[in-house]
C-alpha cells in the first residue's frame, strides 16, 4: 500500500470498490482537494483503515462510504482525519445497512492540531439494522487541541420506518419494494458523490444487491 499524495492545488476524485487497495495514507497539500468514495457490496468482508492528513492550508478532504451487508460479513472501517494546519475542511459521511448476522464496526476520529485554527470538520455515520442478529458498533471521536474550530460528529443506528412502509403499501407498493426504496434513499446521499461516469452503473449494482438481500430475508 502506497501513500496517495494530493499536490498543491490538485483535485482528485477516487472511487474504491471491493477488491481495490486503499492507500495507507492520503496526504493533501496546500489548496489540494480529495474526494474519496468507498463502496462495500454484500458478501464482502473488509477491514479498512484510512488515514488522511491535511498538511497545507486550504486543503480539503471529503470521504464518503456506503456498505450493504446481508449475510455474515465483517466490515471494519477506521478513519483518522488529521487537521495539521489552519484553514482546512473535511467531511466524512458513512452510511450502511446491516442484515443477516453481519457485523459492522466504525471508528472515526477527527484530530485537530493545536495550531490548526479555523478548521471545519464534520463526520457522520448512520446505520440501518435489518435483523436482530446483525450488530453495529459505531464510535465517532473528536480530539481537538485548537480553540477556533467548527467540528461535529453524529452517529445513529435505526431500523426501517414502519409508518413509511405502511404508507407505501397502502398505495399498492409491495413490502419488498418499499424496503428497497427505503434503503436506496438511505444510501443515496453517499452514491451521489460517485463521479458521474460511474454513478449510474454502481447505483444499479447497489440496487440489485439490496433487492437480493430483501428478497432473501
Amino acid at each position: 500500500m502506497k501513500d496517495l499524495l494530493i499536490h498543491s492545488g490538485e483535485v482528485v476524485h477516487k472511487v474504491f470498490v471491493y477488491g481495490d487497495t486503499l492507500p495507507a495514507r492520503i496526504i493533501v497539500e496546500r489548496d489540494g482537494r480529495v474526494d474519496v468514495v468507498v463502496l462495500i457490496m454484500p458478501g464482502v468482508s473488509e477491514d479498512l483503515k484510512l488515514d488522511v492528513e491535511l498538511v497545507g492550508e486550504g486543503a480539503e478532504a471529503n470521504i464518503y462510504g456506503a456498505y450493504v451487508c446481508g449475510a455474515d460479513e465483517r466490515v471494519k472501517i477506521a478513519v483518522d482525519m488529521h487537521h495539521k494546519v489552519p484553514h482546512c475542511n473535511s467531511r466524512q459521511l458513512f452510511k450502511g445497512v446491516a442484515g443477516g448476522s453481519s457485523r459492522v464496526d466504525f471508528y472515526g476520529k477527527i484530530i485537530v492540531a493545536q495550531d490548526a485554527q479555523r478548521t471545519e470538520a464534520y463526520q457522520e455515520n448512520h446505520n440501518i439494522l435489518l435483523s436482530d442478529n446483525a450488530k453495529v458498533d459505531t464510535k465517532p471521536q473528536l480530539e481537538i487541541y485548537a480553540d477556533d474550530v467548527k467540528c461535529s460528529h453524529g452517529a445513529t443506528i435505526g431500523r426501517l420506518n414502519e409508518e413509511e412502509q405502511f404508507y407505501m403499501r397502502s398505495r399498492g407498493i409491495t413490502l419488498e419494494d418499499a424496503k428497497v426504496l427505503q434503503m436506496i434513499s438511505f444510501i443515496a446521499p453517499v452514491l451521489e458523490n460517485i463521479p458521474e461516469a460511474d454513478r449510474e452503473q454502481l447505483s444499479v449494482q447497489f440496487e440489485d444487491a439490496i433487492r437480493n438481500i430483501v428478497h432473501n430475508s
Partner: peptide, 20 residues
C-alpha cells in the same frame, strides 16, 4: 400523510402504478 425522505413523488408513484 407520511414523509418519505429521499424518495421523489415521481419514483414513488411510478413504483405504485406499476405495482398495481
Amino acid at each position: 400523510p407520511v414523509e418519505i425522505p429521499g424518495v421523489t413523488i415521481t419514483n414513488f408513484m411510478k413504483t405504485a402504478v406499476n405495482a398495481h
